[in-house]
Design a protein around this nucleic acid. Sequence first.
DNA 1: GATGAATGAGACTTCATTCAT
DNA 2: CATGAATGAAGTCTCATTCAT
Lengths: 192, 192, 192, 192
Amino acid sequence: MATFVNERSFIMKTNQKEHIMETALQLFASKGYGQTSIALIAREAGVAQGLMYNYFDSKEALLLAIMEQGFAGVQESMAVYAGTHSPKKALELHVEATFAQVTANKNFWKLFHAIKMQEQVQQFLDAEYAHAKSFIIKTLSGNFKKLGYDKPTDEAKLFFVMIDGLVIHHLMDAKTFPLHTIKKTIFQRYHI
Amino acid sequence: MATFVNERSFIMKTNQKEHIMETALQLFASKGYGQTSIALIAREAGVAQGLMYNYFDSKEALLLAIMEQGFAGVQESMAVYAGTHSPKKALELHVEATFAQVTANKNFWKLFHAIKMQEQVQQFLDAEYAHAKSFIIKTLSGNFKKLGYDKPTDEAKLFFVMIDGLVIHHLMDAKTFPLHTIKKTIFQRYHI
Amino acid sequence: MATFVNERSFIMKTNQKEHIMETALQLFASKGYGQTSIALIAREAGVAQGLMYNYFDSKEALLLAIMEQGFAGVQESMAVYAGTHSPKKALELHVEATFAQVTANKNFWKLFHAIKMQEQVQQFLDAEYAHAKSFIIKTLSGNFKKLGYDKPTDEAKLFFVMIDGLVIHHLMDAKTFPLHTIKKTIFQRYHI
Amino acid sequence: MATFVNERSFIMKTNQKEHIMETALQLFASKGYGQTSIALIAREAGVAQGLMYNYFDSKEALLLAIMEQGFAGVQESMAVYAGTHSPKKALELHVEATFAQVTANKNFWKLFHAIKMQEQVQQFLDAEYAHAKSFIIKTLSGNFKKLGYDKPTDEAKLFFVMIDGLVIHHLMDAKTFPLHTIKKTIFQRYHI
DNA sequence: GATGAATGAGACTTCATTCAT
DNA sequence: CATGAATGAAGTCTCATTCAT
């Protein structure tokens, strides 16, 4: 009996925190971090303003928690195709995984791309992001080398910014930039 | 005499307005629009806070003026290669002109890319930006068609997001993403 | 059996109430009443926040309870030398008892002296404090009269504020104002 | 003409800042620092809340400014009797100057004594206060030595806490502890 | 045009207190 | 009795904007 109560209250707590994070993510993504007030998040989430501070030390800590959760998703997703593959298969999986990530997590990626250019925020993103970025480029570079490309690192960078650019424009205007249609053109270009 | 005085004050005014816009652009680009206060802009520009409102109705109007000035630069730059060219030359000129624009106007493009994902701002950007975007893609598409590409519109979109992605990453990390080195890889890929 | 359980729970309760009061006193004394939150007291005492309100109606009631407990100590201590003594012995005992009180109860006296000048708090202190103060002065005055002092009431007031001043400075800086060293000078001055 | 305007606006500015400080001092002294909100100060001073922050960086900075102004008064006052005097005259002047200070500046001294026991505030008081305290005790000690007292430093400390204790009680209850009546008893005691 | 003091709405945050469990 | 999640009022502070000079 007591166990049941504890479980339920644990679930409630978790849900409440999750609920706040989801509401905040949605608002941050659509209005921007700076334009989203704590008051609005609380109102939309249907909780009192003060409750936010039971779960997060500050508005910035809330943002950080959201970002970390999002990055955790990326790492999971990257782990999927980390195994040894043929270089072509690896390129294919990178694209597929990236698109799947973005599709499943649109709000997170909108927020991420909106925020990443602001110097002040880069500090706490850099630890996680710069590392992921250089890891991806190194991996891509290895694959392009195996495929006999002339300057594999430059090819990798170009591939990376192409995927990233496509994702960014897809997030802003999904109709004009549909991932799965343009993906075919990418695969043709790289003979995947 | 009076004419001279008027001219001088006109010049002063123009210079001061320009000076404020440049100061604001630099601060917006480095700290973000929301994190830059009118007080800071005035202090950095060496003018009184109230003076801003002689030139701009509001902080948002100041941003709008900066954006419009930036877009005017783009149109000028696009006009350069608007003439009839061979499709390859046209692609080359597009890349060159874009990179030249970005290099000459780093702060504007940093600000633009930082701001473009926020729904609220998109409204007044859309009029100018969406139009430019679709114009560029249409032009690129025409060139890819002339070059015999299979799906010229998708090729154009891919080309566009690739250039854009490269520019974005260059603005964030110029050392890892040098425009002129990676440009060569682009030209090779498209046989330019 | 039931009696035993009741006794135990009664003891627990008493101890817990005492424990909360002691924790609160220590925090009030070191951080100040206003700077000490209920949350902190509960955390330091190792109990739930809500539990406080089973024992005390409010934060102010907790303070009041602490103050009353402290004053009870004073009255006990004063009872010790309330008997008939020679006037010199009475003065001596007053000093000794005061210093013993302060030494045994540093936190309470720190809190008391930090709080006593705030008008708002004086209201509920006044009932207890003003009475004690005037009682002490009256008693001292009687002793100085017996000793043949010219203006015994003024002497009593001076004696009182001297002891009080010494205690206050001792509480703030015990090294510079050691009670037992300066006590000797007092005794010499009054030929005790 | 322009000079006149400048002068007047300078005076206005100065007055406004002074006016806020005086209002704040009065409220801090009567309600306590923690119990006095910025909103109340602004309301009492008849200005907007935001204006406070044109003159003071924070509520604490406002307190600091008030304290510094108060201490400046003390130093001025101490300079008056800093010259060479007979030791008796020096003691007399110390008492007179202290009482004059307190009488002229009741609110400041109420605030000071209410605040001085709070650990957190002591940090920025210590620089100014601890120095003044030890200077006064050293000076008094010199005088008591000249007068042939046995343990001049302990005498000085006792004298100091006696004056301080009297001031504190006078500030709380001026009727029971009138400075000028009790002063006579002090002077008799020390044969001044 | 130019100044900068003044405004006031609104942001983030804290915290005593309540209440369902 | 005990918990601690939840509340909501109130506090400090920021900042775009106005206006008298």
